[in-house]
């Protein structure tokens, strides 16, 4: 059993995971949107999972960066879901997926601007007040900036400060963004407000051209991202849960467990060392 590392629970391998013993995560993560209002076979399966593992969530449709109003009816359902399943973490993307009253079902990049910071921070505070918990926002991967007036790291730090929310530290996304936009991921990490980190995501990606990586979650984690992970967690003030995301091109579960084991091993080595230093 892993102590720190969880797995994104996917229907693609749900039954094999529940009935088998190939995967031994510390927790599971789901998108509430995929499970709200669901009954029948999949509710039974989800119940089995939730009885066995702590449940973390990673939302898709809050659209915290949208110009549109927050969807309070949707948020009521999210709140009910978080309560029903005793969810430990509710995380979401620092992006927008709805605009002009139309859902887009994917993550669009927000203009890195001061007015957007204030707009989003206000919305995060409203969501936090309503849910009675901190929102954990994720640094998303993006393929082009749009109308940026400040740097990405300034934008993220400003939101963390103004919204008083927590950070989902997606190491793969930082690697992808560094590659796509020509900056150093380690320097980016050094500039982030790491005191806000609540949770980490790790995943693989696809390089589609010489200068572009798409964040697909469809491949194993590559070694440079493992290295960046090791660097990143050595900077954290305390241990946090780590998630392995694999959404497409799913391999044998034993292969996922091997990736989780490697992450777990890095966590143990790094954080045991940190504790030893403190002692």
């Amino acid at each position: 059993m892993n102590k720190h590392v969880g797995i994104g629970f996917r229907k693609d391998f749900g039954t094999e995971f529940i009935e088998g013993s190939a995967l031994k995560p510390a927790f599971v993560e789901v998108a509430p949107e995929n499970w709200i209002d669901v009954g029948g076979f999949w509710k039974k399966q989800f119940r089995k999972v939730a009885e066995q593992y702590p449940v973390y969530t990673h939302g898709l449709s809050l659209s915290i960066g949208s110009p549109d109003p927050l969807d309070w009816e949707f948020l009521k359902k999210v709140k009910s879901f978080l309560s029903e399943w005793d969810v430990k973490v509710y995380s979401e993307h620092l992006s927008y997926s709805k605009c002009d009253n139309a859902h887009l079902y994917d993550l669009l990049p927000i203009p890195f601007r001061e007015d957007a910071v204030k707009h989003i921070a206000e919305r995060i505070r409203q969501v936090q007040d309503f849910l009675g918990r901190k929102l954990v926002i994720e640094i998303v991967s993006y393929y082009t900036p749009v109308a940026a007036e400040m740097s990405e790291v300034e934008f993220i730090n400003a939101i963390l400060q103004e919204a008083d929310c927590e950070l989902l530290f997606d190491i793969n996304n930082i690697y992808v963004n560094g590659f796509n936009h020509g900056y150093s991921p380690t320097e980016f990490i050094d500039q982030l407000d790491l005191s806000k980190v609540k949770y980490i995501h790790m995943a693989g990606h696809d390089q589609v051209s010489e200068d572009l990586i798409i964040d697909t979650h469809g491949q194993p984690i590559i070694d440079p991202v493992f290295d960046l992970f090791e660097y990143a967690i050595s900077k954290l003030p305390h241990p946090v849960p780590v998630l392995l995301e694999r959404d497409f091109n799913i391999p044998e579960l034993a292969e996922l467990q091997e990736e989780m084991n490697r992450l777990e091993s890095i966590c143990r080595n790094t954080w045991q060392h940190e504790h030893a230093l403190k002692a």
Partner: peptide, 13 residues
């Protein structure tokens, strides 16, 4: 949110 920021988001969407 300034109208010009909204406009950029709206155009991308």
């Amino acid at each position: 949110l300034k109208p010009e920021t909204y406009e950029q988001q709206s155009r991308l969407a």
